[in-house]
C-alpha cells in the first residue's frame, strides 16, 4: 500500500470504487431538458411532414381539379391492388434499378479498389484521384452532360466513340434502351463513392496476414476469397446498404435525362411520385405513393440495421 492510499479512510475508498446511486428524479429531468432541441427537430422535420403526408394520403386532394374530400384508404387500395399500372411498373423498375446499380457499382468499385490495393503507393494515389473525378461533379451537371453531350441525339459522341452510332439509336429516345442508358450514367457518376469506401476498408486490412498467406503459398484468388472478402464484409455490407437506400430514392438522373420517358419507360418511384404530386397536382394520390415508398425504404433500413446487429454488431 502506498503512502497516499494509506491516508484515505476505508469508507471513502469504498465510495470511490462504487459511485453513489443517482438521485433518479433530478438526474432524469435534467437529462430530458437537453433532449428538447433534438426532439423539436425530429418533430418539426420528420413527424410533421410525415403526418401531413398521411393526412393528405387519406384525402382526394387535387389542386388542379380543386377537389378535397375524405377518401379513406381508397388511394392505398388503388395502389396496392394494381389498378395504377404505372405505379406498379415504376415500383418494379425501381427495384430492378437498385439491384443493377448496386451490382455494377460493387463490381466496378471493388475491382478498382483491389487494383489500387496491389499497386505501389505513388501510382495508387494517382489512379485514386482519377477514379474519383466523376463524384466531384454535381449529379445535375453529370446528368445534363450525359443527356446533352454523350447521348445527344444529334451528336451521339458516346456511341461514336464506341463505334455504335450506326448500329444503336440514341438510347434516351428508345424505350428499350433509355433505362439502361441512365444506369450507365449513374454508375459512372456514383461508383466512385463506393470505390472510396471500399478502398478505405481495404487499407485497414492487416497486410501481415496477407504476407503470411503468401508465404504459405496462397494464390491471389485464394487470398481474395478466404481473407480479403471475409475481412471486408462489414465494410461491404454498410456501403451497399447505404447505396441501396440511395438508389431506391434515385431522382435527379432520371428526371433530368428523360423525365420518366419515353413512354413512361424510365419512371422510378420518386420521379413518378413527383410527377403525380407536383406536375399534375394530385397531392392525395401522390402522398399515398410517398407513404408506400416510405414504408418500403423504412423496411429496407430496418432490415439492414437488423442484419448488421445480428451478424456484425459484436464484431463492431
Amino acid at each position: 500500500m502506498t503512502e497516499a492510499t494509506a491516508q484515505i479512510p476505508p469508507g471513502a475508498v469504498k465510495s470511490l470504487g462504487k459511485p453513489a446511486p443517482r438521485r433518479r428524479g433530478i438526474a432524469s429531468v435534467n437529462y430530458w431538458w437537453f433532449l428538447i432541441p433534438a426532439m423539436i427537430g425530429v418533430f418539426a422535420l420528420i413527424a410533421v411532414p410525415i403526418g401531413f403526408s398521411v393526412y393528405f394520403s387519406l384525402r382526394n386532394y387535387n389542386l388542379q381539379l380543386g377537389s378535397d374530400s375524405f377518401a379513406g384508404i381508397d388511394n392505398y387500395v388503388r395502389l396496392l391492388t394494381g389498378r395504377n399500372a404505372d405505379f406498379i411498373a415504376a415500383l418494379g423498375r425501381t427495384l430492378l434499378y437498385v439491384v443493377v446499380v448496386i451490382a455494377l457499382d460493387f463490381v466496378l468499385a471493388m475491382s478498382q479498389a483491389l487494383l489500387l490495393f496491389s499497386m505501389r503507393a505513388g501510382w495508387a494515389k494517382f489512379w485514386r484521384a482519377i477514379f474519383i473525378l466523376p463524384i466531384l461533379i454535381i449529379p445535375t451537371a453529370s446528368a445534363v452532360f450525359w443527356r446533352n453531350v454523350m447521348y445527344a441525339p444529334h451528336n451521339g459522341e458516346f456511341l461514336k466513340v464506341l463505334g455504335l452510332s450506326d448500329v444503336v439509336s440514341p438510347p434516351l429516345g428508345d424505350p428499350q434502351l433509355a433505362f439502361w442508358a441512365i444506369i450507365v450514367t449513374v454508375v459512372w457518376a456514383w461508383s466512385p463513392w463506393v470505390f472510396i469506401l471500399l478502398s478505405a476498408g481495404l487499407d485497414q486490412i492487416d497486410k501481415s496476414i496477407l504476407e503470411a498467406s503468401m508465404v504459405d503459398g496462397a494464390t491471389y484468388f485464394q487470398r481474395l476469397r478466404t481473407i480479403i472478402l471475409p475481412l471486408m464484409k462489414p465494410v461491404i455490407f454498410v456501403t451497399l446498404s447505404f447505396k441501396a437506400l440511395d438508389s431506391f430514392l434515385a431522382f435527379p438522373f432520371v428526371w433530368i435525362m428523360t423525365m420518366g420517358g419515353p413512354g413512361n419507360s424510365t419512371h422510378v418511384l420518386s420521379t413518378y411520385i413527383y410527377q403525380q404530386a407536383f406536375t399534375l397536382l394530385d397531392y392525395g394520390n401522390g402522398s399515398a405513393m410517398a407513404i408506400v415508398m416510405l414504408v418500403i425504404s423504412g423496411g429496407l433500413s430496418i432490415a439492414a440495421i437488423f442484419i448488421w446487429q445480428r451478424f456484425y454488431g459484436k464484431e463492431a
Binding site: 380543386g66 424505350p175 419515353p262 413512354g263 406536375t279
Partner: peptide, 23 residues
C-alpha cells in the same frame, strides 16, 4: 378545363412517345 393539363402531360406525352417509338 382543370383536367386538360393532366390529359396532355400524363396521358398524351407517354402515348406520343410510344407512337414515335413504334410501340
Amino acid at each position: 378545363t382543370p383536367v386538360t393539363a393532366q390529359l396532355r402531360q400524363s396521358i398524351g406525352i407517354p402515348a406520343y412517345e410510344k407512337l414515335i417509338g413504334n410501340q
